[in-house]
Computed example of a mutant assay.
Amino acid sequence: MIDKNAIFKIQTQAEFEALALEVFRFQFKNNRVYRSFCDLLYKHPTDIKTVIDIPFLPIQFFKTRDILSTKNEVKTTFTSSGTTGSETSKHHVTDLDIYEQSFNKGFEYFYGAIEDYVVLGLLPSYLERKGSSLIYMVDAMISKSKHHESGFYLDNISELKDTLIKLDSEGKKILLIGVSFALLDLVEMHQFNLKNTIIMETGGMKGRRKELIREELHKQLKTGFGVNNIHSEYGMTELLSQGYSQGNGTFKCPNWMRILTRDTEDALTINTNGKAGGINVIDLANINSCSFIATQDLGRVDSDGSFEVIGRFDNSDIRGCNLMVL
Protein backbone atom coordinates (compact mmCIF):
# COMPACT_ATOMS: atom_id res chain seq x y z
CA MET A 1 0.00 0.00 0.00
CA ILE A 2 1.29 3.45 -0.91
CA ASP A 3 1.44 6.16 1.76
CA LYS A 4 -0.99 8.81 0.47
CA ASN A 5 0.80 11.53 2.41
CA ALA A 6 3.98 10.86 0.43
CA ILE A 7 2.22 12.25 -2.64
CA PHE A 8 2.12 15.74 -1.17
CA LYS A 9 5.72 15.66 0.11
CA ILE A 10 7.28 15.42 -3.36
CA GLN A 11 9.97 18.05 -3.82
CA THR A 12 12.15 16.90 -6.71
CA GLN A 13 11.73 15.46 -10.18
CA ALA A 14 13.44 12.27 -9.06
CA GLU A 15 10.96 11.85 -6.21
CA PHE A 16 8.05 12.38 -8.61
CA GLU A 17 9.35 9.81 -11.09
CA ALA A 18 10.01 7.21 -8.39
CA LEU A 19 6.55 7.57 -6.86
CA ALA A 20 4.85 7.64 -10.28
CA LEU A 21 6.43 4.29 -11.14
CA GLU A 22 5.36 2.91 -7.76
CA VAL A 23 1.79 4.13 -8.33
CA PHE A 24 1.80 2.56 -11.79
CA ARG A 25 2.77 -0.83 -10.36
CA PHE A 26 0.09 -0.48 -7.67
CA GLN A 27 -2.64 0.40 -10.16
CA PHE A 28 -1.58 -2.28 -12.64
CA LYS A 29 -2.05 -4.81 -9.86
CA ASN A 30 -5.26 -3.42 -8.32
CA ASN A 31 -7.20 -1.66 -11.08
CA ARG A 32 -8.99 -4.24 -13.21
CA VAL A 33 -9.86 -1.85 -16.04
CA TYR A 34 -6.39 -0.33 -16.21
CA ARG A 35 -4.77 -3.76 -16.07
CA SER A 36 -6.89 -4.94 -19.00
CA PHE A 37 -5.94 -1.83 -20.96
CA CYS A 38 -2.23 -2.40 -20.28
CA ASP A 39 -2.58 -6.06 -21.24
CA LEU A 40 -4.10 -5.08 -24.59
CA LEU A 41 -1.01 -2.95 -25.22
CA TYR A 42 1.30 -5.77 -24.04
CA LYS A 43 2.65 -3.44 -21.35
CA HIS A 44 3.82 -5.07 -18.13
CA PRO A 45 5.60 -3.47 -15.14
CA THR A 46 8.83 -5.13 -16.29
CA ASP A 47 8.55 -3.07 -19.49
CA ILE A 48 8.14 0.25 -17.68
CA LYS A 49 11.46 1.88 -16.89
CA THR A 50 10.57 5.59 -17.01
CA VAL A 51 7.46 7.73 -16.75
CA ILE A 52 7.12 8.08 -20.53
CA ASP A 53 6.81 4.28 -20.80
CA ILE A 54 3.62 4.25 -18.71
CA PRO A 55 0.36 3.65 -20.63
CA PHE A 56 -2.24 6.43 -20.33
CA LEU A 57 -5.85 5.35 -19.99
CA PRO A 58 -8.19 7.18 -22.43
CA ILE A 59 -10.43 9.48 -20.43
CA GLN A 60 -13.55 8.05 -22.12
CA PHE A 61 -13.25 4.97 -19.90
CA PHE A 62 -14.59 7.09 -17.02
CA LYS A 63 -17.91 7.18 -18.93
CA THR A 64 -18.29 3.44 -19.39
CA ARG A 65 -16.37 1.72 -16.57
CA ASP A 66 -15.85 1.99 -12.81
CA ILE A 67 -12.23 3.14 -12.54
CA LEU A 68 -11.07 1.97 -9.11
CA SER A 69 -7.77 0.76 -7.68
CA THR A 70 -9.18 -0.16 -4.29
CA LYS A 71 -12.01 -2.17 -2.78
CA ASN A 72 -12.67 0.49 -0.16
CA GLU A 73 -16.12 2.04 0.06
CA VAL A 74 -16.88 4.81 -2.43
CA LYS A 75 -17.55 7.98 -0.40
CA THR A 76 -18.81 10.09 -3.29
CA THR A 77 -19.00 10.05 -7.07
CA PHE A 78 -18.15 13.18 -9.01
CA THR A 79 -19.87 13.50 -12.38
CA SER A 80 -19.21 15.66 -15.42
CA SER A 81 -21.78 18.09 -16.73
CA GLY A 82 -21.77 16.48 -20.18
CA THR A 83 -23.80 17.70 -23.12
CA THR A 84 -27.45 16.98 -23.81
CA GLY A 85 -27.90 13.29 -24.54
CA SER A 86 -24.25 12.43 -23.89
CA GLU A 87 -22.98 10.01 -21.29
CA THR A 88 -21.30 11.64 -18.32
CA SER A 89 -17.99 10.75 -16.73
CA LYS A 90 -18.08 9.25 -13.24
CA HIS A 91 -15.12 9.54 -10.87
CA HIS A 92 -15.61 7.34 -7.80
CA VAL A 93 -13.74 8.73 -4.80
CA THR A 94 -13.00 6.50 -1.83
CA ASP A 95 -10.86 8.96 0.15
CA LEU A 96 -12.05 12.57 0.20
CA ASP A 97 -9.12 13.55 2.41
CA ILE A 98 -6.81 13.07 -0.59
CA TYR A 99 -8.93 15.40 -2.70
CA GLU A 100 -9.06 18.01 0.04
CA GLN A 101 -5.31 17.84 0.61
CA SER A 102 -4.77 18.16 -3.12
CA PHE A 103 -6.84 21.27 -3.73
CA ASN A 104 -5.85 22.95 -0.48
CA LYS A 105 -2.11 22.37 -0.92
CA GLY A 106 -2.30 23.08 -4.65
CA PHE A 107 -3.99 26.44 -4.14
CA GLU A 108 -1.64 27.34 -1.30
CA TYR A 109 1.40 26.49 -3.46
CA PHE A 110 0.44 29.17 -5.99
CA TYR A 111 -1.61 31.71 -4.01
CA GLY A 112 -1.00 31.28 -0.30
CA ALA A 113 -3.40 30.22 2.44
CA ILE A 114 -7.06 30.13 1.41
CA GLU A 115 -7.94 31.38 4.92
CA ASP A 116 -6.61 34.80 3.92
CA TYR A 117 -9.10 35.23 1.07
CA VAL A 118 -12.73 36.18 0.79
CA VAL A 119 -13.92 33.41 -1.56
CA LEU A 120 -16.77 34.32 -3.90
CA GLY A 121 -18.12 31.52 -6.08
CA LEU A 122 -19.99 32.51 -9.25
CA LEU A 123 -20.81 29.04 -10.54
CA PRO A 124 -24.53 28.92 -11.44
CA SER A 125 -24.37 26.07 -13.96
CA TYR A 126 -22.49 23.89 -11.46
CA LEU A 127 -24.71 24.74 -8.50
CA GLU A 128 -27.76 23.69 -10.50
CA ARG A 129 -26.70 20.05 -10.64
CA LYS A 130 -25.33 17.40 -8.27
CA GLY A 131 -21.94 15.73 -8.31
CA SER A 132 -19.66 18.63 -9.27
CA SER A 133 -16.09 18.26 -8.01
CA LEU A 134 -15.60 21.99 -8.59
CA ILE A 135 -18.50 22.87 -6.28
CA TYR A 136 -17.09 20.51 -3.64
CA MET A 137 -13.72 22.29 -3.86
CA VAL A 138 -15.07 25.84 -3.77
CA ASP A 139 -17.52 24.98 -0.97
CA ALA A 140 -14.60 23.66 1.10
CA MET A 141 -12.60 26.81 0.35
CA ILE A 142 -15.53 28.97 1.43
CA SER A 143 -15.79 26.99 4.67
CA LYS A 144 -12.07 27.34 5.27
CA SER A 145 -12.04 31.08 4.59
CA LYS A 146 -11.92 33.19 7.72
CA HIS A 147 -14.19 35.82 6.17
CA HIS A 148 -17.93 35.71 6.76
CA GLU A 149 -18.55 37.40 3.39
CA SER A 150 -17.41 34.27 1.52
CA GLY A 151 -20.15 32.39 -0.29
CA PHE A 152 -21.81 31.25 -3.52
CA TYR A 153 -23.80 33.41 -5.88
CA LEU A 154 -26.42 32.03 -8.25
CA ASP A 155 -28.81 34.61 -9.73
CA ASN A 156 -28.09 37.41 -7.26
CA ILE A 157 -25.58 39.17 -9.55
CA SER A 158 -26.51 42.63 -8.27
CA GLU A 159 -25.69 41.60 -4.70
CA LEU A 160 -22.36 40.17 -5.86
CA LYS A 161 -21.54 43.45 -7.63
CA ASP A 162 -22.11 45.45 -4.43
CA THR A 163 -20.18 42.96 -2.28
CA LEU A 164 -17.24 42.90 -4.67
CA ILE A 165 -16.94 46.69 -4.85
CA LYS A 166 -17.21 47.08 -1.08
CA LEU A 167 -14.70 44.37 -0.17
CA ASP A 168 -12.16 45.40 -2.80
CA SER A 169 -12.31 49.03 -1.67
CA GLU A 170 -11.67 47.85 1.89
CA GLY A 171 -8.43 46.23 0.74
CA LYS A 172 -9.45 42.66 1.47
CA LYS A 173 -7.88 39.85 -0.57
CA ILE A 174 -10.60 38.38 -2.76
CA LEU A 175 -10.83 35.30 -4.95
CA LEU A 176 -13.72 35.48 -7.40
CA ILE A 177 -13.93 32.09 -9.10
CA GLY A 178 -16.53 31.79 -11.81
CA VAL A 179 -17.73 30.09 -14.95
CA SER A 180 -17.01 32.19 -18.04
CA PHE A 181 -20.56 33.09 -19.08
CA ALA A 182 -21.46 34.29 -15.58
CA LEU A 183 -18.33 36.46 -15.32
CA LEU A 184 -19.25 38.04 -18.67
CA ASP A 185 -22.79 38.63 -17.39
CA LEU A 186 -21.31 40.43 -14.38
CA VAL A 187 -19.06 42.81 -16.36
CA GLU A 188 -21.86 43.58 -18.78
CA MET A 189 -23.90 44.72 -15.81
CA HIS A 190 -21.14 46.82 -14.23
CA GLN A 191 -17.61 47.99 -15.10
CA PHE A 192 -15.18 47.48 -12.22
CA ASN A 193 -11.76 48.85 -11.25
CA LEU A 194 -10.53 46.16 -8.88
CA LYS A 195 -7.23 46.39 -7.02
CA ASN A 196 -7.29 43.45 -4.58
CA THR A 197 -9.25 40.78 -6.42
CA ILE A 198 -8.10 37.65 -8.27
CA ILE A 199 -10.52 36.83 -11.11
CA MET A 200 -10.31 33.10 -11.85
CA GLU A 201 -12.31 31.64 -14.73
CA THR A 202 -13.03 27.96 -14.91
CA GLY A 203 -13.97 28.04 -18.58
CA GLY A 204 -17.09 26.99 -20.39
CA MET A 205 -20.14 28.80 -21.69
CA LYS A 206 -22.41 25.82 -20.88
CA GLY A 207 -24.54 26.60 -23.90
CA ARG A 208 -25.43 30.03 -22.47
CA ARG A 209 -23.18 32.02 -24.85
CA LYS A 210 -21.10 31.61 -27.96
CA GLU A 211 -17.75 29.95 -27.18
CA LEU A 212 -14.83 32.39 -27.26
CA ILE A 213 -11.13 31.75 -27.71
CA ARG A 214 -9.16 32.38 -24.53
CA GLU A 215 -7.58 35.63 -25.75
CA GLU A 216 -10.93 37.22 -26.54
CA LEU A 217 -12.54 36.00 -23.30
CA HIS A 218 -9.68 37.31 -21.19
CA LYS A 219 -9.61 40.63 -23.04
CA GLN A 220 -13.27 41.23 -22.26
CA LEU A 221 -12.86 40.18 -18.62
CA LYS A 222 -9.72 42.27 -18.05
CA THR A 223 -11.48 45.34 -19.43
CA GLY A 224 -14.66 44.67 -17.46
CA PHE A 225 -12.99 44.02 -14.11
CA GLY A 226 -10.20 46.56 -14.56
CA VAL A 227 -7.46 44.02 -13.85
CA ASN A 228 -4.16 43.21 -15.57
CA ASN A 229 -4.54 39.42 -15.58
CA ILE A 230 -7.27 36.81 -15.65
CA HIS A 231 -6.38 33.64 -13.79
CA SER A 232 -7.56 30.18 -14.85
CA GLU A 233 -7.98 26.75 -13.31
CA TYR A 234 -7.31 23.57 -15.28
CA GLY A 235 -9.23 20.72 -13.73
CA MET A 236 -11.80 18.10 -14.61
CA THR A 237 -14.07 15.51 -13.09
CA GLU A 238 -11.56 12.73 -13.71
CA LEU A 239 -8.75 14.48 -11.78
CA LEU A 240 -8.26 15.27 -8.11
CA SER A 241 -5.63 17.94 -8.80
CA GLN A 242 -5.64 21.25 -10.64
CA GLY A 243 -3.24 23.32 -12.67
CA TYR A 244 -3.37 27.11 -12.39
CA SER A 245 -2.65 29.96 -14.77
CA GLN A 246 -1.89 33.37 -13.30
CA GLY A 247 -2.24 35.02 -16.69
CA ASN A 248 -1.50 34.61 -20.41
CA GLY A 249 -2.96 31.11 -20.49
CA THR A 250 0.19 29.35 -19.23
CA PHE A 251 -0.61 26.75 -16.56
CA LYS A 252 1.60 25.30 -13.86
CA CYS A 253 1.07 22.15 -11.83
CA PRO A 254 1.74 21.27 -8.19
CA ASN A 255 4.59 18.85 -7.55
CA TRP A 256 2.40 15.73 -7.63
CA MET A 257 0.95 16.46 -11.07
CA ARG A 258 2.57 16.55 -14.49
CA ILE A 259 1.46 17.18 -18.07
CA LEU A 260 2.87 15.36 -21.10
CA THR A 261 1.70 15.48 -24.71
CA ARG A 262 1.25 12.55 -27.06
CA ASP A 263 1.69 12.47 -30.80
CA THR A 264 -1.62 13.20 -32.54
CA GLU A 265 -0.97 10.45 -35.08
CA ASP A 266 0.40 7.85 -32.65
CA ALA A 267 -1.26 7.94 -29.24
CA LEU A 268 1.41 5.71 -27.68
CA THR A 269 4.28 8.08 -28.50
CA ILE A 270 5.09 10.84 -26.01
CA ASN A 271 6.37 14.12 -27.45
CA THR A 272 9.72 15.20 -26.05
CA ASN A 273 10.39 18.25 -28.21
CA GLY A 274 7.77 20.77 -27.13
CA LYS A 275 5.53 19.77 -30.03
CA ALA A 276 1.80 20.27 -29.61
CA GLY A 277 -0.23 17.12 -29.03
CA GLY A 278 -2.89 15.40 -26.98
CA ILE A 279 -2.61 16.20 -23.28
CA ASN A 280 -1.73 13.30 -20.99
CA VAL A 281 -2.03 13.94 -17.27
CA ILE A 282 -0.21 12.26 -14.41
CA ASP A 283 -2.14 13.02 -11.23
CA LEU A 284 -0.73 11.07 -8.32
CA ALA A 285 -3.67 12.20 -6.15
CA ASN A 286 -5.73 9.78 -8.27
CA ILE A 287 -4.07 6.89 -6.49
CA ASN A 288 -7.40 5.13 -5.85
CA SER A 289 -8.70 5.53 -9.41
CA CYS A 290 -6.18 6.02 -12.24
CA SER A 291 -3.27 8.43 -12.18
CA PHE A 292 -2.41 8.21 -15.87
CA ILE A 293 -5.05 9.73 -18.15
CA ALA A 294 -5.07 10.60 -21.85
CA THR A 295 -7.44 13.57 -22.18
CA GLN A 296 -9.22 14.96 -25.25
CA ASP A 297 -7.45 18.30 -24.89
CA LEU A 298 -4.70 19.53 -27.18
CA GLY A 299 -1.78 21.39 -25.70
CA ARG A 300 1.89 22.21 -25.61
CA VAL A 301 4.37 21.70 -22.75
CA ASP A 302 7.31 24.02 -22.17
CA SER A 303 10.74 22.90 -20.99
CA ASP A 304 9.97 24.04 -17.43
CA GLY A 305 6.87 21.81 -17.25
CA SER A 306 4.33 24.63 -17.66
CA PHE A 307 1.72 24.08 -20.36
CA GLU A 308 -0.97 25.71 -22.44
CA VAL A 309 -4.27 24.34 -23.69
CA ILE A 310 -4.79 25.11 -27.37
CA GLY A 311 -8.00 23.26 -28.16
CA ARG A 312 -9.66 19.87 -28.29
CA PHE A 313 -9.66 16.90 -30.61
CA ASP A 314 -12.35 16.99 -33.27
CA ASN A 315 -15.64 15.22 -32.51
CA SER A 316 -15.04 15.25 -28.74
CA ASP A 317 -17.74 16.59 -26.47
CA ILE A 318 -17.02 20.05 -25.08
CA ARG A 319 -17.43 20.09 -21.32
CA GLY A 320 -15.55 20.44 -18.09
CA CYS A 321 -13.29 23.20 -16.88
CA ASN A 322 -11.29 25.54 -19.07
CA LEU A 323 -11.93 23.81 -22.40
CA MET A 324 -12.03 26.53 -24.98
CA VAL A 325 -11.83 25.60 -28.65
CA LEU A 326 -9.72 27.58 -31.07
Rank of each mutant, 00 (worst) to 15 (best):
A182S: 15
N193S: 15
N193D: 14
H148W: 01
M189E: 14
N196Y: 09
H190G: 00
H190N: 14
L164A: 05
A182W: 03
K172L: 15
E149Y: 11
D185V: 02
S169M: 13
S169P: 00
K173W: 02
G171Q: 07
L194K: 03
L183C: 05
L184M: 13
Q191L: 04
S169V: 07
M200K: 04
L154M: 04
N196P: 11
H148Y: 06
L160A: 01
S180Y: 05
V187A: 00
N196S: 12
M189S: 12
K195D: 02
H148T: 14
F192T: 00
L194H: 00
G171H: 06
M200R: 03
L176A: 02
D162Q: 11
S158V: 13
H148M: 09
F152H: 15
L154C: 03
D168Y: 03
L176I: 00
N196D: 09
L186H: 01
N156V: 02
L184Q: 12
L160K: 06
L183F: 08
L186C: 09
K166E: 12
I157V: 06
S180L: 01
V179M: 12
N156K: 13
N156T: 12
D185I: 01
D162F: 13
K166V: 06
L175N: 08
V179D: 05
I198C: 02
G178Q: 02
L186D: 06
L183H: 07
K166Y: 11
I174K: 10
D155T: 15
E170Q: 15
L194F: 01
M200A: 13
L164F: 08
L176H: 03
F152I: 00
F192Q: 09
S150Q: 04
L164D: 02
N156F: 07
N193R: 14
I177C: 14
G151W: 03
S180F: 00
G151T: 00
I177T: 14
V179P: 07
I199T: 10
M200Q: 13
L184R: 07
L167W: 01
K173I: 02
L175A: 13
N196H: 15
V179K: 09
I198S: 01
F181R: 13
S158R: 12
S150C: 08
L167N: 05
E149G: 03
E188L: 10
N193A: 14
S158C: 05
L154F: 14
L184N: 04
I157R: 12
V179A: 15
N196W: 01
I157W: 03
Y153C: 11
H148D: 12
L184T: 05
S169Y: 10
I198P: 03
T163L: 11
K166F: 12
I174Q: 11
G178C: 09
E149K: 11
K173F: 00
L154D: 03
F181Y: 15
D185C: 03
T197I: 07
I157E: 08
Y153M: 07
G171P: 12
H148G: 00
L183G: 10
E159W: 01
E159V: 13
Q191E: 13
K195M: 04
L175G: 07
S150P: 04
D155E: 15
S180G: 07
L176F: 06
I174H: 04
Q191H: 14
D162G: 04
